[in-house]
Amino acid sequence: MSTKVEAPAVCNSCNAVISGRIVTALNKKWHPEHFTCNTCRKPIDGAKFHQHDGGVHCVACFAAHHSPRCHGCGEPITDRVIQALGVSWHAHHFICGGCKKELGGGGFMEQAGRPYCSACYADKFAARCHGCSKPITDKAIIALDAKWHRECFTCMKCTNPVTDATFSVMDNKPLCGKCA
């Protein structure tokens, strides 16, 4: 039969024996009034606190002094942080510069320091096809001092795609080898 006597709890701050309520945090024990925020020095009530640079901080002080600031609004970010374009954002402030939809953690395109979804980026900034005037988002044919979708670079007579490396030109429009 083993009779194990448990040692009294000793406060990590004042080294005195704790009688009554005990705060257990960071594998140590504390008098409730001695487990304090390193910034405001007030006791940390409840179970929520943050560790930073070797100290503990209440939620309010951590947010005010140590949380990253949102590039969109300037306020502290206390939940999910999006790191993009070299800055931090609240998820709801990391939005497309065109349609204003949230970009989340997905892909985006950048223009002049602003994020855009792929559709808005193509609509606003992509090269336009000389044949159909729509944005070119994939490979392009460069011919006759213009860019073309592959399917838009067609013979002006038979309207078949011009696929040969050499072709003829009439009125600044392509002619396939058969129609030339």
Rank of each mutant, 00 (worst) to 15 (best):
F49V: 01
A9T: 14
K100T: 13
L26G: 02
V81S: 07
H130P: 08
G20A: 01
T159R: 06
D171A: 11
V17W: 09
D79M: 05
I22P: 05
A63R: 13
I77D: 04
H50G: 00
T163L: 11
H57G: 00
C96H: 10
A180R: 07
R69H: 14
N38M: 07
A180C: 00
G113W: 13
F108W: 05
A140D: 06
K28V: 03
H31D: 11
R21T: 15
C117Q: 04
G72N: 07
S133V: 06
I136R: 15
I136G: 06
A140W: 08
A143L: 12
A146Y: 14
H57N: 08
M109N: 01
N172S: 08
A112D: 14
G105D: 11
H31L: 10
K29N: 07
C14W: 14
E33L: 05
E102V: 02
D164N: 12
H93Y: 12
R128I: 06
K178E: 15
Y116H: 08
G55C: 02
I77P: 00
Q51A: 03
F167G: 00
G131E: 08
Q111D: 08
T78W: 13
P43C: 01
N12W: 09
C117Y: 05
D138F: 13
A84S: 06
I44V: 06
W89P: 01
N15K: 09
T24D: 07
H57R: 08
F153N: 05
V56H: 00
L144H: 12
A127H: 06
H90W: 05
G113H: 11
D123M: 13
H71L: 12
F153D: 02
A91C: 03
G55W: 01
G74H: 15
T78L: 11
T166S: 08
